[in-house]
Amino acid sequence: MTSTTDSPNPAATARSSNDDHVGLAAIDLRVVYDGFVAVEKTTLHVAPGESFGIVGESGSGKSTVLRAICGLAPMESGKVQLIGGGDRTLPAPGSKPFRRLVQMVFQDPYGSLHPRQTVDRILAEPLAIHGIQDAETRIERALDEVGLGNGFRFRYPHQLSGGQRQRIAIARALILEPQIMLLDEPTSALDASVQAEVLNLLEDLRRRRGLTFIMVSHDLAVVTHMCEKLMVMQRGQTVELLSSADLAAHRVQQDYTRKLMQASAGFSRDAATA
């Protein structure tokens, strides 16, 4: 899994800024809620600078994997660790420096922003938590980076459209300058045209900053568009690990993956009755 990356220079040039990129490994994750096994035997390696997708239907445990990685879900067993990063020692999961490196964007832009806080306050909070000083310039820069001007800074979430809210959520994650972004269905609540804008923004950010993405989606087309590798999950277990090129070329091993592909192509009577 860790072999190749699409990052522009894989250790060829000795520029330290590129060696700084951080990847992530999750080994044998198991998450149990009240006796219900949500995720089991899930292992993934995401190389520094790589974009990794997780696909599955609801209840397959794909979001739980992300939540376990960033410490929002109780891990019963298994291990999460950062990989790469050059010479420096990487922070342990759960620590404050880890959380600064690994940031998450949630699915529903209508539910993930505090309704009674202005954009300014939403963006200032992570800075305050991590004791970062120049909040003023960072907020301006973050808004700029997600394609929203300074005019949005003192608005409330209800004064923004869905796409604008998701941009704010992305800005909130970016403002800490993370290395890894966990994206939980970042566009499923958005219209197709807005989805294209947000996906382009995410790709652009990843290219500019050399970010590592782990993206969860139920939309196969979105995941293959954004990610080089992907994992198909069902009932908390890994069904298949494959590359996007394999998926696009229909080189699929498992029936379940094939079924998902068929379903995403649209309605047909044969597929529906099968």
Partner: peptide, 20 residues
């Protein structure tokens, strides 16, 4: 046409996606 065009497609490599 724009609406159709801005969807990612399985078999195509389109970076960046055309926007409406």
């Amino acid at each position: 046409r724009g609406l159709l065009n801005c969807l990612p497609r399985l078999a195509e490599d389109r970076h960046p996606l055309p926007t409406l």
